[in-house]
């Protein structure tokens, strides 16, 4: 029998992996991909909870839908800025962002 706990555990593992990726990746595109994993981890938790604990409103699955919208919007702005970074530095490595100092 699959329980809510299984889904939450999967979501937690996925979130931990995403967090790991955000911290260790040294390419901005890869960092943004890791953020996508984080968002999907949350979406899984929402969708599963809706099916198990929120039989009337099912708002969790609605939330999961909105998370996809948010993810797409975030990526489009993120990539637009990334293109600007690339235009100025010729690279998408995180190092170019790290070196700013006053």
């Amino acid at each position: 029998m699959i329980t809510l706990g299984h889904f939450l555990a999967l979501s937690a593992v996925l979130f931990a992996i995403g967090l790991f990726g955000v911290i260790t990746r040294r390419n901005l595109i890869a960092v943004l991909m890791s953020v996508e994993i984080l968002l999907n981890a949350a979406a899984i938790a929402f969708a599963a909870t809706a099916a198990y604990k929120d039989p009337v409103f099912f708002s969790g699955q609605l939330f999961a839908l909105f998370i996809m919208v948010v993810a797409a919007a975030e990526l489009s702005i993120g990539f637009a800025i990334l293109l600007n970074v690339f235009r100025h530095t010729g690279s998408a490595a995180t190092d170019v962002v790290e070196e700013m100092r006053g």
Partner: peptide
């Protein structure tokens, strides 16, 4: 600097949003 600062802002902002969301 504008692009770089914004990129850093966006990455950490997205991370914080994701944490909040979770």
């Amino acid at each position: 600097e504008s692009a770089e600062g914004a990129m850093k802002y966006l990455v950490l902002g997205a991370l914080s949003s994701a944490i909040l969301l979770y």
